[in-house]
Write a protein that binds this DNA or RNA. Sequence first.
DNA 1: TCAAAAGTGTTCTTGATACACCCATGG
DNA 2: CCATGGGTGTATCAAGAACACTTTTGA
Lengths: 228, 228
Amino acid sequence: MPVNQKIKVAVDGVVFGYTSKDGLLILLIKRDVTPFKGDWALPGGLVLDEESLEDAIYRELKEETGVQINYLEQLYSFGKPGRDPRNRVVSITYYGLVKPDGLMLNAGTDAGDARWFNVKNMPELAFDHRDIVSVALKRLQSKIVYEPIGFELLDEKFPFSELEKLYMAVLDRPIDRRNFKKKVSKFGFLIETNEKQALETAGRPGNLFCFDQEKYFQLKKDGINFEI
Amino acid sequence: MPVNQKIKVAVDGVVFGYTSKDGLLILLIKRDVTPFKGDWALPGGLVLDEESLEDAIYRELKEETGVQINYLEQLYSFGKPGRDPRNRVVSITYYGLVKPDGLMLNAGTDAGDARWFNVKNMPELAFDHRDIVSVALKRLQSKIVYEPIGFELLDEKFPFSELEKLYMAVLDRPIDRRNFKKKVSKFGFLIETNEKQALETAGRPGNLFCFDQEKYFQLKKDGINFEI
DNA sequence: TCAAAAGTGTTCTTGATACACCCATGG
DNA sequence: CCATGGGTGTATCAAGAACACTTTTGA
């Protein structure tokens, strides 16, 4: 039994954001140390001896980017020898979702080099972070059709078209507006408010909706399952 | 940056088997060291400095149980401080499937204390292994309905009723034989042979079927998705 | 000849898909 | 009054669910 194991444990986070203007976004930081100095990478770092994995990823995200996470879930663990050229590092990765009002960076301490990139227009990434992003994107795509995590990427109140465009951006395919509305409405956790969208552009303003989390959890507990 | 991190990295495996006689089975080993000496636990152990996580779990399963794994997939990583009373251990867990002809234990070196238990009749487990099994079972249940991993729990040739009973055992609910057969047959990767089941009991013997892996991968590549 | 398990089709209901015109607003 | 984007309903088709009797074998 090797008690003198040399493996280190890290956490890394794939944080997604969304705006209809910029599409599906991912949060990266610019490395200021070797290896891969100057390259972009996922936020993350080593786990402290006494903190849980979740605490570690929240701490790293706060320190390095200052974003406010709405949803976080463990993704996968990467541990191939050689993925970090310095030491053997096993990284437990998470993916998170941020609402548009939390996209503002630099609220943290040393977030000077954090930036959002459109997922279709990412730079080269350090380590095996490209693989991690790829797994995260697939997970997001498959999860968003059977749990309403899409709402965690929108403001509290949003026009219906935002939800629709978000799904198109994440799933990367067209969606029929009428069928989509029928499906989503059927579940009953979408509340229509009396307010209307504030426009910056021409076009008819849409009604604002919000997500009824209470009702969703109730439905989920009763065993009703959401599927888009 | 803490370079003197004290966390250890382990792998643990939830290995499922199935026979129509005994139902859905899980592989446990009896601990012969403290802590939890004499209790049952999942097979697993610390990862060696130079081996991949997958190599580690295969090695541990072989050393501790000698089973022959047909399917293996990473499950989840558990890392709460205190889950192991001795040291901080982060465990990357896997779940695996074994065909009935690989159920034989003791082919390994020191597998004297490995045993199969029906999932509905497990003993108390060491550490947080009960939680791990619970996650694995949910994963198996959700995976078996959209990927044909069920075939990895049956012999090469099997009567159709075995497949049906397996699904009932895993999903823990009744299934209509005719509807199930229609669904499964529709995909076209189920081959009917001319052979008939050898009976130990009364009743009409069923035709034997086998799973066409080639065809399945072809269909999958073409983007056809299986769902029971 | 009885008990046990396998084999097989049809009907009905529900959900999925395809599709086009009118409405409210800003410029 | 025109351009832009939001809002809405129906008809067709496919898949899912419910359901019972006949056949083959061992005892």
